[in-house]
């Protein structure tokens, strides 16, 4: 095999070449920061929700695009985060009162609870050496079952879910104003973006990509691939939980559809269409598909999902790197053809 130098290594050698995507990211950030100046309230509210999905998509980008873990049940973490947060702030979880019942503590509990759950699941999956398609279907089964549990569990609202979640507050300030929510979610999105880019660029991220591209080789260098995958899985789950909490904060309701099959596969489509190997591309993919869906599903009704399915198949066959992915990627980050 006369492969060129591994893309991970060449990227590590020449950090200067990463300026281009960083500039684009900065540009996107500035556009979002200044957006409320347009005084378009409808889109401010809309964008707040879209950014929540964008954060969710970024978490899957790390897990799938960089970790090579095809996760068909990522919404389980999103939904679990939303449910745990909601149960705590509504005072429905015994023992979580007083300081433990505040928004911040609920947020932290939700994220750490989900991370712990992901660590347990990951331990079984990755030390069971499950990979590729197997992993996809097992996580899919997880999503379907989680949804059925949520539907059947009367205590957490059953089929109808939970409503009238009290607003998120920090030190007495309540996030009710749409603009305040917009900036809350935006700052979370920026923080997540910076965190994930840092993870991806760190030595850990480079090892991760080495495992993704050639697992036996990375293992023969002495890296514990299962442990790296579990850590990635946990980070991805924690970020997904954060986006779930933000969803509960913004929309003030949670329902079983958040935890199940359809959202899991939707996020997969956003990320695949956006570009799974570039975190910003995944974020933009989520925004683009959701915005398009809001517009076209009125026009096309049932035909929208048919169109999306067919378009997705075409994209998988002809644009495996996604629509924004090829545009935003480093020149030196091209994947080895034939691997995914």
């Amino acid at each position: 095999m006369n492969k060129p130098i591994s893309p991970a290594i060449s990227a590590a050698r020449s950090p200067g070449l990463r300026i281009r995507p960083a500039r684009i990211a900065l540009g996107v950030m500035v556009i979002f920061l200044l957006f409320p100046l347009t005084k378009n309230d409808y889109w401010v509210v809309n964008l707040t929700q879209l950014m929540v999905y964008g954060i969710f998509a970024m978490s899957l980008s790390l897990v799938w695009g960089y970790g090579g873990i095809l996760c068909f049940g990522h919404a389980v973490y999103f939904g679990m985060g939303a449910y745990i947060y909601t149960l705590i702030v509504k005072g429905m979880l015994p023992g979580f009162t007083g300081i433990l019942g505040t928004g911040i503590m609920a947020l932290i509990t939700a994220i750490s609870g989900v991370a712990l759950f992901a660590a347990v699941i990951g331990y079984f999956l990755f030390y069971g050496r499950l990979s590729g398609p197997y992993l996809g279907i097992v996580t899919l089964a997880m999503a379907v079952i989680a949804e059925r549990i949520a539907v059947d569990w009367y205590y957490i609202g059953g089929y109808n879910g939970l409503f009238s979640i009290p607003p998120f507050s920090i030190g007495g300030y309540q996030f009710i104003d749409p603009l305040a929510l917009f900036y809350l979610v935006l700052s979370a999105a920026i923080a997540v973006y910076l965190l994930l880019t840092h993870v991806v660029k760190s030595p850990f991220g480079i090892i991760l990509r080495a495992i993704r591209d050639n697992e036996p080789r990375a293992e023969s260098f002495g890296y514990n691939s299962a442990r790296h995958k579990i850590i990635t899985f946990v980070i991805g789950a924690a970020v997904a939980a954060l986006s779930g909490v933000l969803f509960a904060v913004v929309t003030e309701f949670v329902s079983p559809t958040l935890i199940g099959f359809s959202l899991s596969t939707e996020v997969l489509i956003w990320v695949a269409l956006g570009g799974k190997e570039v975190i910003l591309a995944a974020f933009l993919g989520a925004l683009a598909v959701r915005a398009l869906e809001a517009w076209l599903s009125e026009l096309m009704a049932y035909y929208w999902l048919l169109f999306l399915g067919i378009f997705f198949v075409i994209a998988v066959i002809y644009f495996p790197r996604g629509i924004f992915g090829s545009w935003l990627a480093d020149r030196y980050e091209h994947r080895i053809k034939g691997r995914s």
Binding site: G132, G136, F312, S340
Partner: peptide
């Protein structure tokens, strides 16, 4: 690209 077939057949 066997792993992509799972996505395509899902579509």
């Amino acid at each position: 690209r066997p792993l992509d077939t799972i996505l395509a057949t899902w579509g």
